[in-house]
Amino acid sequence: MTLAARVIPCLDVDEGRVVKGVQFVDLRDAGDPVELARAYDAEGADELVFLDITASAQGRDTILDVVSATAEQVFIPLTVGGGVRTVDDARRLLRAGADKTAFNTAAVARPEVLSEAAAAFGSQCVVAAVDARRRDPADPARGWEVYTHGGRRPTGLDAIAWVKECAARGAGEILLTSMDRDGSKEGFDLALLQAATAAVRVPVIASGGAGSAEDMAAGVRRGGAAAVLAASIFHFGELRVGEVKDAMAAAGVPVRRT
């Protein structure tokens, strides 16, 4: 009896449509979040993350329709991030059918929002999304810095100290993205994961850099992550969720089989 490592596809949603080149052969409409969610569910995804990248204020509410339509048909946990600023934002998403909401920029701007959301909904509904980049690749001792606004704005915050603060303020989970590795397919930043998972008791989701099933397994076995997240390698069909689980199981990582 062991908790399974979770495999989590992440979908970028803009004004209600999935963007960033999803290439599933068997989908009628690869831009339809609900259809993609069902496809990933059928492949054995343990959870889904929707990242709302809608820039316009009036387009914002469309994520509620996406969440609601998905929750009607997909019976696995659903996390929504991107533009979640207040407890009311989180409440609307949870009411629409999300199970967790991820705070990123808003948490750095006002860390109290994490404790407010945890008090209102429980820590299990509150994910802290942290985007981190090495301060100096030539000097690992300088650690990692937190970036906000989709990775555009440096904050000066030390990523590990920030991860600890997020957990202390009530985040029930950390979604930790390595900006150095994001899109590189060189594997997760294992040193970052190790530092973060040693610093907090809450689960850490590894994100940024997985290029193979072996990378995913390493994120759990060596990085200490409770879950692994990826976007494009799943969307382009380079890797299927089932394959990742096979490789993780072969590497001795417990996974859920469907």
Partner: peptide
């Protein structure tokens, strides 16, 4: 217990 990740979050087996 204090020696495991809390919350217990994810898929676990039923006996």
């Amino acid at each position: 217990p204090d020696d495991v990740q809390v919350p217990h979050m994810g898929w676990n087996t039923l006996e």
